[in-house]
Design a protein around this nucleic acid. Structure first.
Length: 493
RNA sequence: GCUCCGGUAGUGUAGUCCGGCCAAUCAUGUCGGCCUUUCGAGCCGAUGACUCGGGUUCGAAUCCCGGCCGGAGCACCA
């Protein structure tokens, strides 16, 4: 199967040495240094997965390294739990990083470079009120602070830690005539009067993301920056810094926004919902977090495949769950053992069942892989059937898989035994659970609704985290096992 | 409003830079048939797209102009 795929690929390339699929990185000279740089405001979501998978793939393609850099330079936007959750999520994504940096450990570095930038006459202390500066800036006007002498600047800079929030900022000189007002003399350092959740309260002068990112990307030797197109203007801002310091500018690659069908939740909205009790937690099945998706039985491979297919284009894209389910099903189909689980079960006693037909029934765990073995169900004529199957087959013959054919009338009666007989009667073939031995089962759907039912006894061998196929119901992941009750999260058909 | 950027089938994606081999690729979905003791899988088949209008050209998904639609940014967030 793999070979034929490769063969197709090889004959396809002619015009370019371009591989099919994910496009090549521009300006590659030897090894590549990439970085994944999330803000620790919560766990990773599907959007992060894109950056993570792409970075991972490029490192694999070109060799080099991936840096994980946690960007926590705004004490107000830090969720202490995120320092733990981010690496966990990356591990699930099978994204490996070779180096880890946390920006709140590096604040002194940013201070040093800020001061150097002042000495280079490429930054100045600005004590104008924000709205006044904006007014001038919008008219391409310099504010009075722009002309401060080096001495005056350094003096203010030294005093900055003692000033209060909003009193002063350090601005990078760019171009007051830049078409985009946002680029003009942007802020590099500002005062934040808030204890940092991770490093405590000694620092008050924090770098802005644009400053710390550029300094770090340079210091860490990053060759290619993959980021969302919301950073387009930021890349432009950062280029000024590279020029001021005479640093080599990395390749910036911007990709479009990723929207997820049915999920319009930002991290902050999700947090709010969790706090209000609307969602059970970061892994609530309705959320777009990595942990929620994982909990639903979506495999890492499906997400990776999806992300590599979407690639790096700048146009926005909307991910459909059907696409994910399709990819996921391809991954699960061969590996998932089958079990009978009946939802909304109704007990049925089959009248007139010949004694000889009672006994243990064996059924393959996987119809295509006999080597997976058999499971056993004891059949004695008392079974649970799904209410839906019962309702849909009123006055019809139905075959219980691997057992007998029954007629569903006012009461349920034995009809015949053979499969041929079932075919003749055009019987629907349904699954069932023995009434003599079973476990309770709970199935949590993607919308967080819950169905209850019963599952066959051999389900005891399923371990938490396994994804199995509940025959005729769909693929589901065992989430927990408590007091003889199995709770599954439904993935898809 | 200003600055910038996009728009290929239901969805995602290839092709767009270097116009013809594109009546447009692949995936996923959907529909039909076969098969199957799952409504899963498999096999076979089908459906379905170049945002619109001009222009350049022998020839345009590809180049140019305009419209329409969509998005991002315009912070002392990242």
């Amino acid at each position: 199967m793999e070979l034929s795929k490769l063969g197709v690929q090889e004959t396809k390339k002619e015009k370019k040495t371009q591989e099919k699929g994910l496009s090549d990185l521009p300006g590659v000279e030897g090894e590549v240094v990439l970085r994944f740089a999330p803000n620790p405001s919560g766990p990773l979501h599907i959007g992060h997965a894109r950056a993570a998978c792409l970075n991972q793939e490029y490192v694999k393609r070109y060799g080099g390294k991936l840096i994980l850099r946690v960007e926590d330079t705004d004490p107000r936007r830090v969720d202490p739990d995120a320092y733990q959750m981010i690496p966990e999520d990356l591990e699930w994504l099978k994204t490996e990083w070779q180096e880890l940096y946390i920006q709140s450990d590096r604040l002194e570095i940013y201070h040093q470079y800020a001061e150097e930038l002042i000495r280079l006459d490429q930054a100045y202390m600005c004590i104008c009120p924000g709205d006044e500066f904006k007014k001038l800036k919008d008219q391409n006007q310099a504010c009075p602070c722009r002309d401060l002498s080096l001495e005056e600047n350094l003096e203010l800079w030294k005093k900055m830690p003692d000033m209060s929030e909003g009193e002063a900022v350090l601005r990078v000189k760019t171009d007051l005539n830049h078409k985009n007002p946002a680029i003009r003399d942007w802020v590099a350092m500002r005062i934040v009067e808030e204890k940092h959740p991770r490093i405590g309260g000694d620092f008050r002068v924090y770098p802005m993301m644009n400053f710390s990112v550029a300094v770090d990307d340079h210091l860490m030797g990053v060759t290619h920056v993959l980021r969302g197109k919301d950073h387009l203007a930021n890349s432009e801002k950062q280029k000024y810094l590279y020029q001021h310091f005479s640093w080599k500018i990395p390749e910036f690659i911007h990709y479009g926004r990723l929207k997820m069908e049915d999920i319009a939740l930002s991290t902050s909205q999700a947090r709010k919902g969790i706090e209000e009790g609307v969602y059970s937690g970061w892994d609530d099945p309705r959320l777009g977090t990595i942990r929620a998706i994982a909990r639903r039985g979506i495999m890492q491979g499906a997400i990776e495949e999806l992300m590599l297919e979407i690639g790096v284009k700048i146009a926005d894209s909307t991910v459909s769950w059907k696409k994910i389910y399709g990819l996921n099903r391809n991954l699960l189909e061969d590996k998932s053992n089958r079990y009978f689980a009946v939802l909304n079960p109704e007990k049925v006693e089959i009248k007139g069942l010949p004694e000889v037909l009672k006994g243990n029934i064996e059924r393959l765990k996987h119809p295509d892989f006999p080597e997976a073995g058999f499971r056993e169900l004891y059949f004695d004529g008392a079974v649970y059937l799904g209410q839906e199957d019962l309702d849909n087959n009123r006055d019809k013959v139905v075959r219980l898989m691997d057992a007998v054919n029954i007629f569903i009338g006012d009461e349920v009666t034995y009809h015949s035994a053979s499969l041929e007989e079932a075919r003749k009667s055009d019987a629907r073939i349904v699954h069932w659970v023995p009434s003599s031995s079973n476990y309770q089962v709970e199935l949590v759907m993607p919308d967080a609704s819950v169905s209850n039912g019963l599952i066959e006894p051999e389900s005891r061998e399923i371990r938490v985290g396994d994804v199995v196929q509940l025959e005729r119901v769909g693929f589901a992941r065992l989430d927990s096992l408590e007091g003889g009750k199995l709770t599954f999260y439904f993935a898809h058909k």
